[in-house]
Design a binder for these strands. Structure first.
Lengths: 344, 344
DNA sequence: ATGAAAGCGCTAACAA
DNA sequence: TTGTTAGCGCTTTCAT
């Protein structure tokens, strides 16, 4: 700040009263006379007085800030979560400090320590892909920092968490394909080291089993990191060299689904009539591509809302009462679009 | 914080020295003996001491935080800007506090005041669409808060700003279409109340003029807020009722370009051979749609970098020296994809 | 109804 | 080389 800042002392001086009176008047303390109150409020408004919340926070040992650790803002999914977080926080008088780790462990460590140093009242964390050692998180947890994980959690730490029911989403998607008449449904698998990939695979298998369709391991194919190109390539293989003629694809994510669609079109097959396609995540692109892509929506906004509510509850709970961690599993919703609705 | 926090006093007590010695030891002050230093550092590490930056900030009248006011995180464009901002800030030892206004004036006012109250060292601001009264910004500016505008600025306040050269981008796009052989290029116009819409229109006109192509006002059509549906609708009209057969479209933004593409396909015309299309903003969708969409890239990341550098320069400048505001105009780059490359 | 004073955790001028 | 003290701006207990 270039200029000296305006303080309560300044207001007090001008009015010939003490700064404690100013403080009380500003928070409408019953002891203060109406006359004094009005004078103070008037002058404060005139001078556009903004109290220094640093001093307040230091004094009260409470900042009314919460920190959010997020891997990547540019992902629709996380951006929507943030929006949910800010909504709840804002309405409860909290500010949100966001840090983007770019999936880097080092960055995550630094960010979390910085948030701790600035004494946020609690943290919402989605861990970076790189992170395997969680001591930076257990450290602050042990010091009493309220933490809620969202989307990507860490089982080592016994806190509240909010996650998507990936199994259920995959089940819904696969069941929908079956209901559309698909008998030979391929699955484009995500990276095996992520829990979500496994859960989605399990959901896919469970749906097939429920409807008495045999699981064909040849139709379950890895597509690396799940990029469009990789997905297109593996779909090419399925269509050209596979011994089974498929009529449906459930992809681990929307980018992969898109790659599959490109491959299908290239082979002059029709979507959805020859092959129906369903993705996962319901990114913006899903409604934009041609044909619009059916996809499992993870209700990111709701995840943000739920996680923040849990965190604020914890922050505002009485110090004495023991908080028992809750795990909220949000059911995803299948959004059906043209890519999977076969004409009957 | 549930538990009492660890302070320098605690460390001092355990070591039987004073807290000022601890403070000095921790910042490697030359006066302190190596012996003491090592003891302090060792204990601090053991106890995982994290200094309270609130106290530091209050004392130093410097928070090392910068605030960012952004309309919508979910837009690729802004998300990328943020990434650039965080990059520069992080490397210079600053933290970033982001606020999302959701294009609301009220929210913007509250956010800016909250940032001021928390004594951020400076602010990066992109104003909300709703904002017409700027007194909340002039207020803090007059109190000495360093401010840099990005993308959407406010001419009333004489600060540094970083913006895209929309005129140039539109010019490049239109010139490219002309070079591809287009003679009748339509322009899908953005909302007239935004400066950017006007600049892009002007760039379009200037390119036509340069190449001796007459400006046909019938080919300059509004498409409301620029959504896909609206763009598709107006394109339908041009194709069905227009008296000119067009061979190129320059759209004010990518969503509108997409709508135009849908309309063109519906009319069984080929992109780019019958009609070439160029959009603006180079959103992710541009490379995903079919055919991939040529688009003017605004180099959002660079905007974030440039704005933050300007702000930090201002923050770190000597109080006495007068800062003269700079305006950085970043040239956008046309990214040419299949939607506009006619076979010769 | 108001004021004086202590203290939140840290730094820095001044003393020793 | 280290300690003492004052003070950043605010709240709050205890006096008055």
């Amino acid at each position: 700040m270039r200029k000296a800042q305006l303080t309560m002392q300044d207001i007090a001086d001008r009015l010939g009263i003490s700064k404690s009176t100013v403080s009380r008047a500003l928070k409408d303390h019953p002891d203060i006379s109406d006359e004094t109150k009005q004078a103070v409020v008037k002058l404060a408004k005139e001078l556009d007085f903004q109290p220094n919340t640093l001093a307040l926070s230091l004094r009260q040992k409470k900042t009314n800030n919460i920190g959010v650790i997020i891997p990547e803002i540019v992902h629709d999914f996380f951006a929507k979560i943030i929006t949910g977080v800010q909504e709840v926080a804002y309405n409860s008088g909290y500010n949100v400090i966001m840090c983007q780790t770019n999936e880097s462990y080092e960055r995550e460590k630094t960010d979390i320590n910085a948030l701790f140093s600035s004494r946020v009242d609690g943290m919402l964390i989605s861990v970076a892909k790189e992170t395997e050692d969680f001591s930076h998180i257990t450290n602050i947890y042990n010091k009493g920092m309220p933490i809620v994980f969202f989307d990507r959690s860490c089982d080592l730490i016994h806190t509240s968490k909010v996650v998507t029911d990936d199994f259920d989403g995959a089940f819904q998607a696969t069941e929908h394909l079956i209901n559309q008449g698909c008998k030979h449904i391929a699955h484009l698998l995500g990276p095996k080291n992520l829990d979500i990939s496994i859960s989605r695979l399990e959901g896919y298998k469970a749906a097939l089993t429920k409807y008495g369709i045999e699981i064909n391991e040849n139709l379950i194919v890895k597509c690396g990191e799940g990029t469009q190109e990789e997905a297109a390539r593996v779909t090419d293989l399925i269509l050209e060299e596979g011994d089974t003629k498929i009529d449906g694809i459930f992809a681990n994510n929307d980018m992969a689904a898109l790659g599959a669609m490109q491959s299908i079109k290239k082979h002059n097959l029709k979507i959805p009539d020859d092959i129906a396609v369903v993705g996962f995540s319901n990114w913006q692109l899903a409604e934009i591509v041609d044909p619009p892509l059916s996809s499992v929506s993870q209700s990111a906004y709701e995840i943000g809302i739920a996680a923040t509510k849990l965190l604020l509850k914890e922050i505002e709970s009485n110090e004495n009462e023991e908080i028992k961690p809750e795990t909220k599993v949000l059911k995803p919703q299948l959004v059906i679009r043209a890519s999977s609705q076969k004409k009957k």
